Computed example of a mutant assay.
Amino acid sequence: MGYRTDLALERAGVKAQKEEINGLQVSRMEEKGIRYITVEAPQITGTIDGDGKLRALLTQELQDLLPEEGEVLVAGLGNPQVTPDALGPFCADRMLATRHVRGRVAMEVGLGGLRSVSVTKPGVLGTTGVETAELLQALIRQLHPAAVVAVDAMAAGRLHRLGKTVQISDGGISPGAGVGNDRPSLCRETLGVPVIGLGVPTVVDAATLCSDLCAQEVEGASRMMVTPREIDTLVVRAAHLLALALNCALNPSLEPEVYEQLVAV
């Protein structure tokens, strides 16, 4: 049986080149011209990256995919009212938006010369009645960003990657694909600009749980998704980590400690 997953590392037929960087396992894959970088790390619910190695690695990988200049639109996807799906909106809350800080005002507050960054939380179809792709298309027509970064919670195909994996992709993202709720894909073809996908798996298919723990299939399990007991902590800390890595990638002239002060929530 195949299990639902958003992770390229878990899809059959995708070969990965693996390496270890500062004690972290990094897998690089390419599928249909799309690059995927997967970083496997200790449980994110523990102390957040005390030595900064994970954050620094994610920042470097993001910088390698981002265009060198031009405004970037960060979209925090998901539903903040549903904890396993709240990673994107929580991450957006910790992003430093700079598009409105310009000229003399920027110099006065010590933020002169920063890259223009705009942030949005488009919500979900069930609460807005509007597809995420439609909302982003409208924003892109107005803002003309050089790229979009879409942050979203993901589904894993194996328990040991739940809350311990970060995936980055230059092929965008398909909201809800891992849980069987496919929405229009967010990619260069649909939005007209490069789209970088960024996420952490917060759920697994219940059939995965049965297979990993009991080595057997259970009727009805494939219709359910399972999330860890400490999902509240996982989502908050994962959002913190991704936002810090992305902030540092977009505007590396500011130290991580400065971002912690500017976006404290």
Rank of each mutant, 00 (worst) to 15 (best):
E189N: 09
E189L: 13
E189V: 08
T190L: 08
L191T: 03
L191K: 02
G192S: 08
G192I: 11
G192L: 12
P194N: 04
P194F: 05
V195E: 11
V195C: 13
V195K: 08
V195I: 10
V195S: 13
I196P: 05
I196N: 08
I196K: 06
G197D: 10
G197F: 05
G197E: 09
G197H: 05
L198M: 07
G199F: 10
V200S: 00
P201S: 01
P201T: 07
T202A: 01
T202Y: 00
T202M: 00
V203H: 00
V204L: 01
D205H: 01
A206N: 02
A206M: 12
A206C: 11
A206R: 03
A207C: 08
A207L: 11
A207I: 14
T208F: 00
T208G: 01
T208R: 00
L209G: 08
L209P: 08
L209W: 03
C210N: 04
C210E: 03
C210M: 15
S211T: 13
S211K: 12
S211C: 12
S211H: 14
S211R: 12
S211D: 12
D212S: 09
D212A: 10
D212G: 01
D212Y: 10
L213E: 07
L213T: 15
L213F: 14
L213A: 12
C214W: 13
C214H: 10
C214G: 07
A215H: 13
A215C: 08
A215Y: 11
A215I: 13
Q216F: 10
Q216R: 14
Q216W: 09
E217F: 14
E217Y: 09
V218D: 01
V218Y: 02
V218N: 01
E219F: 11
E219M: 13
G220H: 10
G220W: 05
A221D: 04
A221P: 02
S222V: 15
S222N: 09
R223C: 13
R223E: 14
R223I: 04
M224W: 06
M224C: 15
M224R: 04
M224L: 15
M224Q: 10
M225V: 15
M225H: 12
M225T: 15
V226P: 00
V226H: 00
V226W: 00
V226I: 15
T227S: 09
P228V: 14
P228A: 06
P228F: 00
R229D: 09
R229S: 14
E230C: 12
I231F: 01
I231K: 00
I231H: 01
I231S: 06
D232H: 14
L234R: 01
L234F: 05
L234H: 01
V235I: 13
V235H: 01
V235A: 02
V235E: 00
V235P: 02
V236K: 08
V236S: 09
V236A: 10
V236W: 02
V236I: 13
R237D: 01
A238M: 04
A238R: 03
A238H: 02
A239C: 07
A239S: 13
A239N: 04
H240G: 08
L241V: 15
L241A: 06
L242N: 03
L242F: 10
L242A: 05
A243H: 06
A243L: 06
L244N: 08
L244S: 14
L244D: 10
L244F: 03
A245P: 06
A245M: 04
L246D: 09
L246Y: 11
N247T: 12
C248V: 11
C248P: 01
C248D: 04
A249G: 08
A249R: 09
A249W: 10
